[in-house]
Amino acid sequence: MTGAPPAIEAVDVSRTYQLDGVSVEALRGVSLLVQPGDYVALVGPSGSGKSTLMHLLGGLDRPTGGRLVIGGRDVNALAPPEMATLRNETIGFVFQAFHLLPRTSAVENVALPLVYRGVPARQRRTRAAAMLGRVGLGHRLDHRPNQMSGGEQQRVAIARALVTEPTVLLADEPTGNLDSVTGAAVLELLEQLNVESGVALVLVTHDQEVAARAQRRITMRDGVVVADSDNRHDRPPSVDHGRPATLVPAPSAEPRSASGSGPGHPSGGSGGAAGATGRLPREVDQGRPGVERPGGTA
């Protein structure tokens, strides 16, 4: 398992914006590894740099410092058209606002990435329809976004993200615009796809309950990773009963303490120590089952 090349490798990545002549450091030296099949939650308060990191991991943006390798390709060496191809082949995006094309049927929305890959029209439709079937929308192929519920729209977006069979699925607050029941269902779907297809799932969220379901949680603050903790012991049953209430078989105080962990705290000794650099969660987690979360939230 550890022999496989990482899906994404970031080494001391920084990103500085120029706003009206003032430099703003959105990311200051972030290092991490995302392995194929990972389930990572990226948490942190707004302004912590998690969206910036997300854009970098998805190849939508380039670091101003450090090294970022996506799907084996160094982003700094790629021209914009090559970046586009990289995104098309390696990354799937799911956005909070769905970003479906209006006036365009579900199946055509899902087929869109295949257009830019040069897949023939008939094959596009077949693959898009199959993918919609996998997200439970086989009966909605020709519905347009305005004819579907929010949950259905997000499922279409998920199908679109996965139709190219990417190695990494980046979901930016995928449940942010959905009610809790629908949101939970969408989350389950994402997790199920993560397990079934082996696509690495990187979930940006500010919801600690959502974050707690991930195999691994990366906490950001002020442009740096302050904790990189592992929940992997919860992982196996997550598909079967991965509902918010049964997230972690831990003390009942869990939800409250989880909310407290958002704003950062340097305490998470376990995560903070090893987390900043790209470690491999699979190797670490066995050593301390059940320690991660309480430690991170103390």
Binding site: L60, A84, T85, R87, N88, F93, L101, P113, R160, T164
Partner: peptide, 9 residues
């Protein structure tokens, strides 16, 4: 969005 899913400039 088109760029995100792989449209080149």
């Amino acid at each position: 969005l088109r760029k995100a899913v792989g449209a080149r400039p």
